[in-house]
Structure formats: C-alpha cells, structure tokens
Amino acid sequence: MNPQSQGSLLLKSQLRSLTKNPVDGFSAGLVDDEDIYKWEIMVMGPPDTLYEGGFFKCHMTFPKEYPLRPPKLKFVSDVWHPNVHEDGEVCISILHEPGEDKWGYEKASERWLPIHTVETIMISVISMLSDPNDESPANIDAAKEWRTQPDVFKKKVQRCVRRSQEAAFD
C-alpha cells in the first residue's frame, strides 16, 4: 500500500471516529467532501479562559505524507494569542516537523510523532488557549501584551470572542 493511501485511510478512520464519538471542545469535518486532506474545525473557547464562549474556525491541512509529517493548522477566525501567528497559523511543538530541533529548544519527543491524531492535536490546541507559552512566541506582540499589559490583551481577546460569536451565528 502506498503511503498516500495509508494516510487517507487513517484520516477517514479518524473522521469517522470523531463523528461517532465527538470530543468536548471542538468539532471537525471536511472543507470539501472530495478532499480528505483538508479539514474544517470549530474550536469552542475553553471554559474558565479568556477565550470562553468563542467559536473559532480553523483549517487543518494534511500533507500527502501524513502520518509521517504533521498537518498545518491555521485559524480562519481572528485569534489574538502568543502561539498563533498573525496570519492564523498555530505554532505548537507537536505540529513541528519530526526529529531534533536545530535550535535545541524542543526535544524530539515533543515534536510531531506519527502517533498523533486530530484529537491529540486539538487537545493540545485547547490546552494552548488555556495556557499560552510565552517563552517561544509566534506572535511577539501578543506575548508581550500577555506579560506586561494583561488588561489590553484581555480586551483584544474579548473582541476576537465577540467576532467569532457573530460569525458563528451569521
């Protein structure tokens, strides 16, 4: 079996499982029923966080080499967060290419491993929303505000939550 069909079978299985047994905090489906490699995910802002009440849409795009290489995850909704690039791309260790980190910041075991699933990725994203890592930020301005101007940071996040709610109910 070629790796591409192995990846698509794995993704079909994960989608079936998430449809039958939804996981708290997010829902997942395909952007286009003909393309198993592009998913649309709705993340519910975790309770007791600044993001609570938000409905944040993202796209997860899988490489043809999945599960040997990680997918890319990008918020379509505005999200102000230290670990989300301004263009919406999520920056967390498990989405980084497998192997050693050339800067020595992450251990290989913290990076992408083929055992990760959409569920484990999304649980990490929900955890990231609950507890930002400002040590290696993707969005330096958000990390700086998070540390030095929490009230300003909170207002920006509240605006994102409000916008996400409006978009979800349009």
Rank of each mutant, 00 (worst) to 15 (best):
L10M: 10
K12P: 01
K12G: 11
S13V: 02
Q14P: 03
Q14C: 00
L15W: 04
S17W: 02
S17Y: 09
T19Q: 15
K20L: 15
K20W: 12
N21I: 09
V23R: 02
V23M: 02
F26E: 02
F26H: 03
F26R: 01
S27V: 11
A28K: 11
G29M: 10
G29T: 14
L30M: 15
L30Q: 15
D33G: 15
E34M: 07
D35L: 14
Y37D: 09
K38R: 15
W39A: 15
E40L: 11
I41D: 09
I41W: 04
V43K: 04
V43D: 07
M44E: 14
G45C: 09
P46Q: 08
P47G: 01
P47I: 01
T49F: 06
T49D: 07
L50T: 03
E52Y: 08
G53V: 14
G54I: 03
G54D: 06
F56N: 01
K57S: 12
K57Q: 13
C58L: 15
C58M: 12
H59T: 12
T61Y: 02
F62E: 07
F62V: 10
P63E: 08
K64V: 15
E65W: 06
E65C: 12
E65R: 13
Y66R: 12
L68C: 14
R69D: 11
R69L: 15
K72Q: 11
K72S: 11
L73F: 03
L73A: 08
K74H: 04
F75S: 06
D78K: 12
V79G: 03
V79P: 03
H81W: 00
H81V: 05
H81N: 04
N83R: 04
H85K: 05
H85L: 06
E86P: 07
D87W: 02
G88V: 04
V90H: 00
V90S: 02
C91S: 03
C91V: 04
S93G: 14
I94W: 00
L95E: 06
L95N: 05
H96C: 12
H96I: 09
E97A: 11
P98L: 06
P98N: 08
P98V: 05
P98I: 06
G99R: 07
G99E: 09
E100H: 05
E100S: 10
D101N: 06
K102E: 14
W103H: 13
G104A: 12
G104I: 12
Y105T: 08
K107P: 03
K107R: 14
A108I: 05
A108T: 10
L113T: 13
P114M: 09
P114S: 11
P114N: 09
P114C: 09
P114W: 07
T117R: 00
T117P: 02
T120S: 15
I121R: 01
I121M: 00
I121H: 01
M122K: 00
M122C: 08
I123L: 13
I123G: 02
V125N: 07
I126H: 00
M128E: 11
M128F: 10
M128A: 12
S130V: 10
P132Q: 10
N133E: 12
N133D: 15
N133Y: 10
E135G: 12
S136A: 13
P137F: 03
